[in-house]
Design a protein around this nucleic acid. Structure first.
Length: 109
DNA sequence: CTCTTGACTGAGG
DNA sequence: GCCTCAGCCAAGA
């Protein structure tokens, strides 16, 4: 990869890979961790390019714990199944016990 | 170069 | 708690 390509996007991928099993985080949490809390949209946008990478995008949801990006996955419920496979309860595209499974990147670091 | 859109969020009503 | 507005930055037309 070219150094010029090392941007906010690459940092997002890096943090996303650090998300532990059975945990989730929000776009804003990642953005804030990167020092660009107001660029949460870029995190989601970056996820658009997460295909072909080891980025567990299904573990990244919006601040409400809603699976806003499920439409970007192959199936209509693939994202939900992936989360449920990790022990996360999902109901109506929304993560239950969100605070319980929420993972803060800054908290680990 | 300009305009629109988007996997978002926080503040205000 | 829900709706609306503005800010953010990048990619595509």
């Amino acid at each position: 990869m070219k150094p010029e390509t090392l941007t906010f996007f690459d940092k997002v991928y890096e943090v996303a890979r650090c998300i532990p099993f059975g945990r989730v985080t929000s776009y804003g949490a990642i953005a804030k961790y990167l020092g660009a809390a107001k660029s949460a949209r870029m995190v989601g946008y970056a996820m658009n390019g997460s295909h072909g990478k080891d980025v567990p995008a299904h573990r990244v949801v919006n601040r409400k714990g809603l699976l806003t990006g499920k439409h970007h996955f192959e199936g209509t419920n693939l994202m939900q199944q992936l989360l449920e496979s990790e022990g996360i309860t999902v109901k109506d595209n929304q993560i239950q016990n969100f605070e319980q499974v929420f993972w803060d990147p800054a908290k680990v670091m």
